[in-house]
Design a protein around this nucleic acid. Structure first.
Lengths: 157, 157
DNA sequence: GAAAATTATATTGTGCACAATTAAATTTGA
DNA sequence: TCAAATTTAATTGTGCACAATATAATTTTC
């Protein structure tokens, strides 16, 4: 009598829906905070990367955030229009587009520092619980990204 | 010396990004499985609700999935075009649109039953770990949905 | 019982996500 | 060296999400 791992089609038993719903709730909580900075949530993520290291390429941004150019190109153009960053082809390799923060882009970081504080308040979690859940989600993403890992047989192409 | 709860702006320390990335990875894993059923992931969620209880209104679907009519109306029209469901105004209250599965919609459930099995394989998690993570995410969503819970002062409107 | 308020859905517009294709620059290799 | 393969962005098209607005049906209140 071994109970199989979630063979259910009941919505409330799905891990995927709990994840999907929590993720949308999370961005909904960020929305009013980021609105004050004139940023959307994905734009905020791009800014986080750039505040860590300026002058990265679109490809590097994409690797970090797991987003492709179809998403990033228009998003970066909007941030450029907003005056937060500049985009230009690299001299060394004209295929690459380098993203650099403007002064306004750098300055925004100060106001953005409030955002994680507001969220910490909202979360009401211990540092331990926060770290544990975050790392569990990272592990989950890693497991989900594994090529064909648990598939019994797959000769591939 | 009390360390504050995640006052960091580093991408890899954010719970929100771990959540966002894991959620997108999850739907990416579902995508090829659902493609075989000609469903997108949000369409699959709608079908899960309808397989549990047929004849619900758009409003009830929205409450269950936390999606509004701006998302559901076109999605439901696509499922109607695909022949999986029908939409008609309720006699008792013409404001409401009742969604009912067609025979094809009911039949699809059989093939969909394979989906959670494929995912369980991919996840490689114990039932306990699965359940615990799912319920932690539900709790997180609940906490994030709480109106103004941890805000010190807010006289409101 | 009619005006006002509420409720339910649809519509419009913006901004992601992501697949598929295109185009240009660079690298590789016969 | 030069043609083929690879790499990087951009473009195009579809389908969510969600805010804001519109519209129509129903309920409430006087």
């Amino acid at each position: 009598m071994k109970k199989p791992l979630s063979p259910s089609l009941l919505l409330d038993e799905q891990l995927c829906f709990a994840l999907y719903a929590a993720s949308r709730r999370m961005t909904a909580v960020y929305r009013p905070l980021l609105e004050a900075l004139d940023l959307t949530y994905p734009q905020y993520l791009v800014m986080l990367v750039l505040w860590e290291r300026d002058g990265v390429t679109v490809r590097e941004l994409g690797e970090r955030l797991q987003l492709d150019s179809g998403t990033l190109t228009p998003l970066l153009k909007r941030l450029e229009q907003a005056g937060l960053l500049g985009r230009r082809r690299r001299q060394s390799d004209e295929r690459e587009v380098e993203i650099t923060l403007t002064d306004a882009g750098h300055t925004l970081r100060v106001r953005a520092a409030e955002v994680p504080r507001c969220l910490a308040e909202k979360l009401c979690m211990s540092v331990d619980a926060f770290t544990r859940l975050r790392d569990e989600l990272k592990n989950l993403a890693t497991q989900l990204a594994s090529p064909t890992d648990p598939t019994p047989i797959d000769p591939g192409e």
